[in-house]
Design a binder for these strands. Structure first.
Length: 552
RNA sequence: GCGCCCGUAGCUCAGAUGGAUAGAGUAUCGGACUCCGAAUCCGGAGGUCGCAGGUUCGAAUCCUGCCGGGCGCACCA
């Protein structure tokens, strides 16, 4: 609907420009917005103000000229120039109703848009080290990545999701060592050292490890034992992460292990390639990559003098594999503590021959935790954290997902555990789900009264001309716009806000307009509106990965 | 010290590319079911948009400088 209006305004403006003796004129950029206050119309445009200097007329004059042109358009109920030069436009009620067709013909696909043009995009998220269970910070990144992937798919991208597993390196060694420390503790020995990872889950895994080894155990000083224990623990932890995520409604197209890159020589190949192109050089026995092109403070080491590759080296190879696999947009959901890593990775993309802007990094601010009025710092190493599983079990999957999605990712958020539990029955997500369930229930009621729904095209529409219905119709017709805003800005949270607004209008409508009545024509028309709303709510919840229950 | 994010109602947070009287949820106060589910609806109260300058027809939004909070600044990942 917005672009229909836009086209009409453009046309009118061109006519005026010609009348003023200006032949070539650009109308863009200008705005068609939906005013907060309905008295300013359904749409309003700032075109007259934007173009005032160009036509050498006052904004007010131009707005008046546009008004005269546009009022002749049969689409519009009213056109008014107002304020400093706004153009406020109202669409005829029946035209809004007519537009509902789009919802019925699209059905499950209503809201799909084409901003992606089938471009291949990879969304990498979570990618937490398999050294401990996921905590709520990971949970936030997980939901944001998952919802974004769903939205991009809905917006016409070819989406691939991936979890990168850091199953190699120092952290793995620490994990293995932690297991061995707990192992000797289980045997009743006095601890010689503190384990690098201190959480209770380490002891549990150590126990399982012991049982899996039978009686032929183990000389803790053996390096092979460390890596063996690490492998055992990582597999165990990864299983837990996978099932937590599954229960949280999240799965990946691919789990990509760092060890695969090593085993297949991908890191050496990448280093070799960049050495040949002059991006990597030798200094003091180590290999360095140039990264200052994108504002990084200094060049970075990829291979240490002792011959061991750094984490960055593996990440270079990993991103090279993304490019090699044909993706053209690369979305990385990272914790905000990685923001210093962004410039060097942009530089890496440039070195690999990519436009760095094709790598979109969403930094998810950390979740701080409030319990009993006090803040708790979270640390996997110290074993102090609230796990995603605890929150899921306490608050529920849908509410937890919605809670994370309500906030923009670059806003820090405080997760007050007590409050989240207490509010669980009044969480906005239930408000939206209830609206959906209400819609479903109306069809149950209609069925009980033996009312058979007829096709929208055959419905008498008068009942949809009243103000309550019109408000709701206008809102649900906005849905495709919301999807494209989210896809363009790579954010999910506008959807939550939008769905709350739809639910509000639905509840209001329900309270003030009886849907199923003796008046058959009106009932049919209203049922269509309810169905259209239901479709919108369901599709909207769907792209957030939240259930749309038929009853609650 | 340098860099990134944040500062909006009592609390938790929205306000895309600058637009008309700054919004939602929650908390609080008052009201609404003989009627399709009251997990709902209606109304009241609640704000120097951290502070100070600047840019312009117009700034919560852009620029500069402060103040406050978080996070980074490795041959760790």
């Amino acid at each position: 609907m917005r672009h229909v209006v836009k086209r009409a305004i453009k046309k009118a403006f061109h006519e005026i420009a010609v009348e003023q003796g200006i032949k070539k004129i650009k109308t863009e950029p200008f705005e068609i917005s939906i005013p907060k206050d309905e008295k300013f119309g359904h749409f309003s445009s700032n075109l007259a103000m934007v173009k005032a200097s160009l036509l050498q007329r006052s904004p007010k004059e131009i707005a008046n000229m546009l008004e005269k042109k546009l009022i002749q358009n049969e689409l519009f109920e009213s056109v008014e120039s107002a304020g400093p030069g706004f153009l406020n436009i109202r669409i005829k009620p029946d035209f809004w109703v007519e537009h509902m067709n789009e919802i019925f013909t699209s059905g499950k696909s209503y809201g799909r848009v084409q901003v992606g043009h089938d471009e291949k995009v990879i969304v990498e998220f979570v990618s937490a080290n398999p050294t401990g269970p996921l905590h709520i910070g990971h949970g936030r990144g997980a939901v944001i990545g998952d919802a974004l992937a769903r939205i991009l798919d809905y917006a016409g991208y070819k989406v691939h999701t991936e979890y990168y597993i850091n199953d190699i390196g120092l952290q793995m060694e620490n994990l293995g060592r932690s297991i061995l420390v707990r192992l000797s503790e289980l045997k009743g020995e006095v601890l010689k050292e503190q384990p690098p990872y201190k959480g209770n889950y380490i002891t549990e895994i150590a126990n399982e490890y012991k049982n899996s080894q039978g009686k032929t155990l183990v000389n803790e000083d053996d390096e092979n034992v460390i890596s063996d224990a690490a492998r055992f623990a990582a597999e165990n932890i990864l299983k837990g992460i996978t099932s937590d995520l599954n229960e949280f409604g999240i799965s990946f197209n691919k789990w990509y292990p760092e060890s695969w890159l090593h085993a297949n020589n991908k890191i050496e190949q990448a280093i070799e390639m960049l050495t040949r192109s002059g991006q990597i050089y030798n200094r003091d026995g180590a290999l360095w990559i140039k990264t200052d092109s994108q504002g990084d403070e200094k060049d970075r080491v990829v291979k240490r003098a002792n011959g061991i590759n750094t984490y960055l080296a593996a990440d270079i190879a990993y991103h090279k594999s993304k490019i090699d696999r044909g993706f053209t947009k690369f979305i990385n959901i990272w914790g905000a503590d990685h923001h210093g890593y962004v410039p060097r990775m942009r530089a890496v993309m440039v070195a690999l021959g990519e436009n760095p802007d094709n790598m979109i990094v969403r930094l998810v601010q950390l979740v701080s935790l409030k319990k009993d009025g006090e803040g708790i710092a979270m640390s996997t190493r110290d074993g102090v954290f609230t796990t995603l599983r605890e929150i899921m079990d306490e608050v529920g999957v849908d509410a937890t997902r919605f809670f994370f999605l309500m906030r923009s990712s670059d806003s820090q958020m405080e997760f007050d555990v007590e409050l989240a539990k207490k509010q669980s029955s009044e969480n906005p997500v239930y408000y939206i789900q209830y609206a959906h369930a209400r819609c479903c229930n109306l069809f149950v009621t209609a069925k009980e009264k033996n009312i058979k729904q007829i096709a929208f095209s055959k419905v008498k529409r008068e009942a949809l001309y009243n103000a309550d219905a019109q408000k709701l119709i206008r809102k649900i017709l906005q849905f495709p716009d919301i999807v494209s805003i989210c896809a363009r800005s790579f954010q999910a949270h506008p959807v939550t806000q939008y769905l709350t607004e739809v639910a509000t209008l639905l509840h209001y409508y329900y309270r003030h307009n009886r849907v199923v009545t003796e008046d058959e024509d009106a009932t049919q028309a209203r049922l269509c509106l309810i169905q259209a709303t239901m479709i919108t709510l369901k599709n909207g919840l769907n792209i957030l990965g939240i259930k749309a229950p038929e009853q609650m």
